[in-house]
């Protein structure tokens, strides 16, 4: 599957024209236009059509264009899709409160119908389920494999904590199991894992430390609620120069061993096995997508799996 950079994802309220017309300048990997929690019930109609009309005119820069719709069990979810899918601008639907594979299958079939009616390729619209309840997190893997459209699992920490009767702490102890479960569920299915927001927008240092930890846990990206958080999240997810140098040495060692016809690869006194190679390839892929290295520095075998945005 093609790897797409989804380090940062900024939420933009769908009923705010000013935010819609400027969010393309934020340089986020992903823009998620929100029709759900940030929109009051009596504004759902207005927001839905503001977003649909915005898609006809606005440019969102290099960002992946995604929409968080209302759950399909609400009076609004299906109408959201009917308004925005025919614009052919939505790359990914974020489905809130996903708790079962059936939620995804239902969305999949509505998308298929709308794609056919709009003359789009069936399957063009991808899905990211948002897991934000005990049940949703518990069924992470089943949800991730419920449709080929699913490209990642996203974790919602605030609602999850409320659902399990826990309490939010600065260290995030209450989220440890859930985060690991979301990562494992996503990775077992070969999908990306995207972390919840860091709520304290004033504390960029705390955000950086938290994001580095999430990267170590296996997450590929993190949601942002303020544009100032975006460059910090990118920095945390980007490989360090040391990681890039090491990955390049690993790839070089493999090529040298191949040239010698040797099946055993070593770097210094350390054996290079498959997980090390895969990690090196991943580091170089992210480094390339983040503009840190040139295309010819990536090993040929992974070049074709990379989705690079047009400059």
């Amino acid at each position: 599957m093609a790897y797409k950079l989804r380090r940062s994802r900024i939420y933009v309220p769908g009923n705010n024209p000013r935010m819609l017309s400027t969010c393309g300048l934020f340089d986020a990997d992903v823009i998620t236009i929100d029709l759900e929690d940030s929109i009051a019930p009596d504004q759902k109609l207005a927001a839905r059509w503001l977003v649909a009309e915005a898609f006809k005119d606005l440019d969102f820069g290099r960002s992946e264009v995604t929409v968080r719709i209302n759950a399909l069990s609400t009076p609004w979810g299906r109408k959201d899709l009917e308004a925005i899918i025919p614009t052919k601008r939505v790359e990914v639907i974020y489905l809130p409160k996903t708790e079962s594979p059936e939620n995804i299958k239902q969305l999949d079939s509505v998308l298929e119908k709308l794609e056919r009616e709009s003359g789009m390729e069936v399957g063009a619209t991808k899905i990211v389920p948002i897991l934000e309840s005990a049940k949703g997190v518990w069924f992470a893997y089943d949800i991730a494999v419920a449709s080929d459209r699913v490209v990642a699992l996203s974790f919602g920490g605030e609602d999850y904590t409320r659902d399990v009767g826990g309490e939010r702490t600065p260290e995030g102890t209450e989220l440890m199991w859930a985060r690991s479960q979301v990562v494992a569920g996503a990775k077992a299915a070969g999908k990306q894992a995207l972390d919840t927001v860091y709520s304290n927008v004033e504390d960029l240092e705390g955000l950086y430390k938290n994001t580095v930890m999430m990267k170590k846990l296996g997450f590929d990206g993190k949601a942002a609620i303020h544009p100032n958080q975006i460059p910090v999240i990118h920095e945390a997810f980007n490989p360090t120069q040391d990681e890039i140098d090491y990955a390049l040495r690993v790839i070089q060692a493999i090529e040298e061993a191949k040239a010698k016809g040797s099946g055993v690869v070593a770097l210094g006194r350390k054996m290079i096995d498959k997980p090390i190679v895969e990690k090196a390839e991943r580091v170089l892929m992210i480094a390339y997508l983040a503009g840190m290295i040139e295309e010819d520095e990536i090993p040929e075998n992974i070049r074709e799996s990379i989705v690079k945005e047009e400059e």
Binding site: P17, S21, P41, K44, L45, A46, R48, W49, L50, A52, E53, A54, K56, D57, L58, P75, W76, K79
Partner: peptide, 22 residues
């Protein structure tokens, strides 16, 4: 100082709301 898309969107939403849509 609205852009065209916002004017179109608000007009469309108003007509649909007048028809009773939610």
């Amino acid at each position: 100082w609205a852009f065209d898309y916002a004017i179109r969107a608000r007009t469309r939403a108003a007509v649909l709301a007048a028809k009773g849509e939610v």
